[in-house]
Design a protein around this nucleic acid. Structure first.
Length: 325
DNA sequence: TTCGAAAA
DNA sequence: TTTTCGAAA
């Protein structure tokens, strides 16, 4: 289900890493997927797989990405998805179809010798396999990075932890954490440069709407859980919701319909989350063990991760010194 | 993710 | 002129 671009109405501010501190509840799926598809490039003979063809780009991503947090007084907590709601069936099917289409076209590109195009398309065939989940959890464990298992959507769990104060931010690239009621979302955590903060309260204040109305706006545009109304984008949705009050009044007025509207709305308002988690925000990684796991056991080119491991070690030393000042 | 056509 | 949609890279 095409996802609406809420960027135009979300309140997003640039921020310097140096000005941030606290716990970030990172949507692990989202974060790992970025590294799998974009940050870690598939170029030439650099295949980020073992000889057996097992994907290991996630391990490189974690080792390269973790220093970003540690260098900047941010404690990551990785939140993994649990079960998928049936509301997402259509979206899941759509993504699978897109992957299969990309895979087909990748093969064609390869056959005609267009390796650039093939590499580009390969990124779109990626999915987070069981192996990727397992090895990610293991390297995070060795690096002493807290992990939380969400009962359902990771983003909902991140938003919950942020809302109750167990996390200072959610970490995600899309807008769902805000729709799930997450006060502050850190974006661009996997990109070069500084991140940006998306603020729920400021978004609501900017448009003088309630949290419920924000969800209604998003639903009219389309979310992972429902198809939007044809002809309605963010601007129109916002105007319509403000004019008519809520989603159902808008649908009545336009004689439109959204499948499962009540259920989807309820899902955003109170998604399955758990408070059955505990974590220590003091991270003491076993870098040697992690290095052995990544390099020896999973055959990752040491060059890909050595700098990352060094930075993790430096960050540790730095924290130690801070205690004395 | 970006771009141009189409619709409003 | 603004906004949405769908194609292409």
């Amino acid at each position: 289900m095409g996802n609406a671009d809420l960027r135009d109405i979300a309140h997003i501010e640039d921020v310097a890493f140096g000005d941030l501190s606290g716990v970030v509840a990172v949507d692990a799926h989202n974060w790992l997927y970025r590294y799998l598809t974009t940050t870690v490039k598939f170029t030439g003979d650099h295949r980020y797989t073992t000889e057996d063809g097992e994907e290991v780009a996630n391990l490189i991503g974690i080792v390269q990405g973790l220093p970003k947090f540690l260098d900047n007084d941010l404690t990551p907590v990785f939140v993994f998805d649990g079960g998928v709601t049936d509301l997402k069936d259509d979206e899941v099917a759509k993504r699978r179809a897109a992957r299969e289409d990309a895979e087909e076209r990748r093969k064609e590109a390869e056959e005609r010798g267009d390796s650039v195009e093939a590499a580009r398309l390969e990124a779109r065939t990626q999915r987070l396999t069981d192996t990727i989940h397992e090895t990610s959890r293991e390297v995070l464990r060795l690096l002493d990075v807290p992990v939380v298992e969400a009962p359902a959507e990771g983003e909902a769990q991140c938003a919950y932890m942020n809302r109750v104060g167990d996390a200072d931010f959610s970490g995600s690239e899309d807008y769902d954490t805000m729709l799930f009621g997450g006060p502050r979302t850190l974006r661009q955590l996997t990109s070069k440069g500084d991140p940006e903060v998306m603020d729920l309260e400021k978004t609501l204040a900017d448009h003088d709407i309630t949290q419920e109305q924000l969800v209604d706006v998003a639903m009219l545009c389309g979310t992972d859980f429902n198809e939007g109304v044809r002809g309605i984008g963010p601007k129109t949705a916002l105007r319509a919701v403000k004019e008519h009050g809520d989603l159902f009044a808008v649908l009545d007025a336009r004689d439109a319909d959204i499948a499962n509207a009540e259920r989807v709305r309820e899902f955003f308002h109170s998604p399955p989350v758990t408070d059955d988690y505990a974590f220590d925000t003091t991270i003491t990684p076993d870098v040697d063990a992690a290095r052995a796991y990544v390099v020896d056991e999973w055959e990752v080119d040491p060059q890909e991760v050595e700098r990352g491991f060094e930075r993790i070690e430096e960050a540790l030393t730095q924290t130690g010194l801070d205690d004395w000042t």
